[in-house]
């Protein structure tokens, strides 16, 4: 069973070339692994958005119950623009937190934007949770697109000057309630 590898009278150059290539491959692989090792898992939560520090895209229209709604008219207040849908699980979870937040901070205005939802189920959803803020329908998803919404729930905090200061992906839980309260108390947590 002994195996003979054919010895070839070959230049020692070839062995050297192989080692150089091996070193190069090794270095590239090491750099590659270093890059992978330092990447964070795609994050959930407060997220980067090109809109941060930019004027908030306008929201103008009739609310689900027919009242006029305008984001611009709320200048001077912090506004939380909340994209939601009755079919979305995390929206159900976040609703009580939002209601509590709105009750505790009358100076914070909330505008709901229904995402791919019928007006009746959207207003039914809000009423079931005791939400008192106005919500607009967004039948062709234009508002959602102008804010850069991927999927509900997503929320955008707009400061009194009308600038977007935070984007929150996912449901608003207690930690996120606290970070919104930080903004309201003037500190602004980053």
């Amino acid at each position: 069973m002994s195996e003979v590898t054919t010895p070839v009278e070959s230049t020692p150059r070839r062995g050297r070339t192989l080692r150089i290539v091996a070193v190069v491959v090794g270095v590239i692989a090491a750099a590659f692994i270093a890059v992978l090792a330092t990447r964070q898992p795609t994050e959930v939560g407060q997220a980067a958005s090109p809109l941060l520090g930019q004027p908030a895209p306008q929201i103008d229209g009739a609310s689900l119950d027919g009242q006029p709604v305008s984001l611009a008219s709320l200048q001077g207040h912090y506004v939380l623009v909340n994209f939601f849908a009755s079919w979305c699980g995390p929206c159900h979870t976040e609703l009580p937190n939002l209601v509590a937040l709105a009750r505790a901070h009358p100076d914070l205005k909330v505008i709901g934007v229904a995402f791919n939802d019928s007006s009746t189920s959207a207003s039914g959803f809000l009423a079931s949770g005791g939400a008192e803020w106005p919500a607009v329908a967004d039948p062709d998803e234009h508002i959602a697109l102008s804010y850069g919404v991927r999927a509900p729930p997503e929320s955008y905090l707009v400061d009194p000057e009308g600038m977007v200061v935070a984007k929150i992906i996912g449901g608003i839980d207690q930690t996120r309630v606290r970070s919104i309260e930080d903004y309201l108390s003037g500190g602004g947590s980053r």
């Binding site: 234009h142 697109l145 991927r150």
Partner: peptide
């Protein structure tokens, strides 16, 4: 926008239609 890897031309998700 609401899919992970589809193009807006391939998907019929509401956001793709909006795009």
């Amino acid at each position: 926008p609401s899919c992970t890897d589809l193009t807006a031309a391939d998907s019929n998700a509401p956001t793709a239609v909006a795009v």
